[in-house]
Amino acid sequence: MGLPRTATTFAPPVMEARRWLDGVTHPADRPLLNVSQAAPVDAPPQPMLEAMAQIVLTDPAAHLYGPVLGLPDLREAVADRWSRDYGGTVSPAQVAITSGCNQAFAAAIATLCAEGDEVILPVPYYFNHAMWLDMSGVVTVPLQTGDGLIPDARDAAALITERTRAIVLVSPNNPGGVEYPAATLAAFRDLCHAQGVALIVDETYRDFDARTGAAHDLFIDPDWDDTLIQLYSFSKAYRLTGHRVGAITAAPARLAEVEKFLDTVAICPNQLGQRAALWGMRNLDQWLAGERAEILDRRAVIQDQFAPLAAQGWKILGCGAYFAYLQHPFDLPSDQVAQRLVAGAGILCLPGTMFRPKADTAGQRELRIAFANIDRAGIAELFTRLAAYTP
């Protein structure tokens, strides 16, 4: 008898890390610095809250089932924005709204893969991607990344087999923070097109990319949906994490298959969340630009103030979006370092072992710092504590 699906994968890393807090007290002069989760903890901005309150009170449809593939006005808004931002052509028929970006990934894999198929993930990878592949009976094929954590399409080509169904890229990257060059994405697009496999590009953090203009030209090809499946999350842009609103952009024929998955899992995306996301796209561009500027400022602080830690043997392997991905100098595996940091320094972060397969020992030297919820002063305090800490 085989294992049930959920038994084929590991425990949710963020929830596992939270259990490290059990029984640990933090003195008033050294409160916990929680840099474990890549999600804003603040509520949406006040104007959005007021708009949402009016929606709750005045829009009866916000409380009912809606179209499985999402609110038509929101699908149209995403298509228009993507067409403008990427310089290509995206139609509403190529957009579906999902209950968060994780569901968008799950739906995409459900349309692509059968038992025993393979999907290539650059490592370190986003752990929920690996978890869903495990539970789907799909083999995760790790693609090693070199200096800068940028994957190479030539290395990926050597991993493709007759069972390969997709390559997944996350840019800006979780957990590494790095922004993949446009040329890298184009090379993967060309490889996937030539090999007849899908290219899944998760752009959850696109709103916090440090570059100006389009991050890539994948949508310029009029036949982009032959190969590309793009994923997005409204959670990070508008602080809507609890409302679970994401998007998948792909060929209409694929979205017809996605509809089967979504209808049996959630029936429709969150109605209030969709309307809030639409209101945000129509009204919060200037506010979102300020949010991006704040995140980029924190990234700069991390890079500019890292020298004392570097002198102690720490390294920045990647930095961007919400993340700093670090190499620690200690003669202990990172899962032990991360657990000891809770009581020893009042820091909750995730070890690199959570972002790589068990057999990949590189994760034993790595830690992910999610800095979306610590300001300049918090970053300075984080570095002070890390510099003073010994296991």
Rank of each mutant, 00 (worst) to 15 (best):
L284N: 14
V139C: 09
L284H: 14
L278W: 12
L133V: 12
A256H: 03
G352K: 10
L382T: 12
R376C: 02
Q54V: 06
G137V: 07
Y205G: 14
Q271A: 15
G363L: 04
T264D: 13
D85I: 00
M48L: 15
A130V: 00
K315P: 10
F383C: 01
M52T: 04
D190R: 05
N283D: 10
N270I: 09
A61E: 01
A300E: 10
I120A: 01
L64P: 09
G246R: 05
L326V: 15
R84M: 04
Q364D: 15
V24H: 04
A372N: 09
Q364Y: 07
I220S: 12
T361F: 13
D29Q: 07
Y205Q: 15
L3P: 03
L386G: 09
A321V: 03
A187E: 13
F355G: 03
D226E: 11
A62I: 07
Y325H: 13
L350R: 06
T164R: 02
V139G: 05
R81A: 04
A324G: 07
A51E: 09
K315F: 11
M15P: 02
A253T: 11
G352Y: 09
D80T: 09
I97N: 01
Q305A: 09
G70K: 00
D285N: 13
V119Q: 15
F371M: 12
P124H: 04
L332C: 05
A61N: 02
L71N: 02
A251E: 07
E257P: 04
Q271V: 03
R356V: 12
R163L: 12
L367H: 02
N34I: 11
R244V: 08
N174F: 10
N173K: 00
E16N: 11
L382K: 00
I160D: 00
A104I: 00
L71R: 01
F355R: 00
F306K: 01
H129N: 14
I97R: 01
M354H: 05
E257N: 08
T212W: 14
A338R: 06
K260M: 12
D155Y: 01
Y389P: 03
D331G: 00
D202N: 15
A310N: 06
A345L: 12
Y125W: 11
F355S: 04
D22V: 09
